[in-house]
Design a protein around this nucleic acid. Structure first.
Lengths: 265, 265
DNA sequence: CTTACCAGG
DNA sequence: CCTGCTAAG
């Protein structure tokens, strides 16, 4: 069994104050992918920056308090890489990957964008460069007999079933036609697989993010934007996929819930 | 009897969240002077911006979220004035005064300064202009048979008895020789009276501000920088002067405590 | 609505 | 160590 879990923590310092560490202590995962850490490692409590029993690799953003992704692995990685070869995005705390035996696993925090603004143009630039990278990664890993798993906050809901209020959000960043088409091409063209949707083809959601505004969480007015995206060979071994809505329910230590996928070896 | 109370609220919106309104409802004062309101009137709850039973005049700063002084009077003022005729400081939310029968009462928030920086120079410019104003005010009010009372956060501790750690703060803004000399001249030269000190000549403090840093409040490591400064005729009628340390103790709705002075009519 | 930043205190 | 600002989400 290999278990990988991923969660956007919305500021790891705040999450630690509210209950992240007990969740981490309780997880059965072999790999934990974190997004929106929003801190330099040395601004974090040691129990979060270098938790006992884990190997940690941090990719903070150059801009203080922004973005930031991390990977925790029980096993020591063979190699780790920060960024995906992009001059614009490699220092933005948006991508880190690690090689484990037979598997390249990554933590991704894709820009959220903002419809009609320069921040949306930035998101499109990211999508373009990242798609090229994922295409190369798939080819390179296939040649080396490795599988690929990219977990994180992709900030795109693919289909109507992936957000509760899809009608109201047809012009919202995260559900724009161009973004949705990009994911479609990643799946149907490049050949990656949305592991959670593959296991749960007919459910609404499961949502992974609920705005802090209004009563979005109580009304389950969520979005499924935190994805586990795998090469087909790995996806075929997926045994379960769960969104741990309860993990962030009681204390609400993030506005996202952890997404956990399990694979047979 | 005339009772006047003054408190630096360190953000009235935050103070309201923490317990300011019950304190206001319970005060026996006829006049309440507020400093560091840090909000436009329409950003405040109505119970704070226009409390029932009070006439309110607000002098917010042009810069959002900064400074800001207000006056609440049970009686309708004959006149109110914002600023003291200074091109530099009148829009900075640092001075408002009201005329009541036989009395001009003001709420003052003097710049805190920062030793060795431009912000200290700004404080000295304020002191210079404000002293000239207080000199004129005293003369004008004397001619009109009015007394003057300027309450507020003067941001200067006059003597060693006015702060617990005076030795460590000999080079700190708020206890610099030049600032202390300015107050001395205001008392001995211009002829105003420090009402609280006049009634309590031999006590340490009573302190009115304790830093939020460390355990300053618990250790009573405070400063007496919130003053009630009156013309001699009014000061002679002072009957009591109290620092309401307990008012901000339980909830700690400000880092300053209210200073309350009572005068016979 | 919440996270950080920062200046100001 | 707090306030409120701003940008970001």
């Amino acid at each position: 069994m290999l278990t990988v879990t991923s969660v956007n923590v919305n500021g790891l310092r705040a999450a630690v104050r509210k209950g992240f560490l007990p969740w981490l202590a309780a997880t059965a995962a072999d790999v934990v992918c974190l997004q929106e850490v929003r801190a330099e490692p040395d601004q974090l409590p040691a129990a979060a920056a270098a938790p006992e029993g884990w190997y940690a690799v941090h990719a903070p953003a150059a801009a203080k308090g922004r973005a930031g992704v991390s990977l925790l692995t029980r096993q020591e990685p063979e190699r780790v890489r920060i960024g995906f070869g992009s001059a614009e995005f490699d220092t933005c705390g948006r991508y880190v990957e690690a090689d484990l035996p037979g598997l390249t696993v990554a933590s991704l925090y894709l820009p959220s964008g903002e419809a009609g603004t320069e921040r949306q143009e930035e998101k499109y630039r990211f999508l373009k460069e990242f798609e090229a990278y994922l295409t190369d990664l798939r080819a390179g890993c296939a040649a080396a007999g490795r599988e690929v798993l990219v977990c994180g906050d992709w900030n795109i809901a693919h289909r109507e079933a992936d957000l509760k209020n899809w009608k109201a959000n047809r012009a919202s960043a995260g559900f724009l036609p161009q973004e949705r088409a990009w994911l479609s091409h990643l799946y149907d063209g490049v050949g990656y697989v949305d592991v959670v949707r593959a296991l749960h083809p007919d459910t609404a959601g499961p949502y992974t993010w609920w705005s802090y505004r209004g009563r979005a969480f109580d009304n389950d007015a969520g979005w499924r934007i935190d994805l586990a995206v795998a090469t087909p060979g790995l996806a075929a071994r997926a045994e379960s996929a769960v969104v741990e809505r309860a993990a962030t329910h009681a204390e609400r230590w993030s506005d996202h819930a952890p997404v956990t996928v399990r694979f047979t070896r």
